[in-house]
Amino acid sequence: MRRAWYRILWGLLFVLIDLKVEMVDMLPDMLGYLLIASGLWRLQRLNGYFRLGHLSAWLLLVWSAASLFWFPEVAMGSVHMQSVKNLFILLPAVLLHTALIYGICRGIQAHYTGTESELDRKARFRLHLFMAGQLLLLILYPFMLNLDSGDMMSVIFICSLLVMVAEITVLFLVRSAGGEWNE
């Protein structure tokens, strides 16, 4: 079971880091979602939150594969946000990713509630941090359509940074959960 946690950890790392060489992502998101899905497949029997995360991971895997063929500019990460079409292409991925992190964090929180470890408290705080950043991003994204794109880009960048920091703390949370797992 511990391997499942580490798959999730590696999967999140693949999704978080975009290491591109000549426009090719060396750590493709698709592989990341596959690792997360396979990890959560083992954990989903523990509680419903992991099941939600598992389902989200599979849907994100499908979305990543589909966008590679239908919207290659999205898959390459070069999409311009100042059009309604592009915003709506990205919206499902943002929502599913939110559901994935929610599922992982709430799953850990539920599983470790009542144990001596403080993982439930840590999971709760990190989820709040992530959700706050993600909520801000979701509210601000559509303003890209109407406000000066230069100003908005800097605001979006700051919010993205907040979300990234929150996701890094979730990575450490998953590592701790894997470390504390008792077979």
Binding site: V84, L87, L135, I139, L140, Y141, P142, F143, L145, N146
Partner: peptide
């Protein structure tokens, strides 16, 4: 409240843009 805020932002901005 969060869902309402997000929905208002999207609907309002897309409507104004269009």
């Amino acid at each position: 409240l969060a869902i309402l805020l997000v929905a208002c932002s999207w609907i309002g901005n897309v409507w104004y843009y269009e």
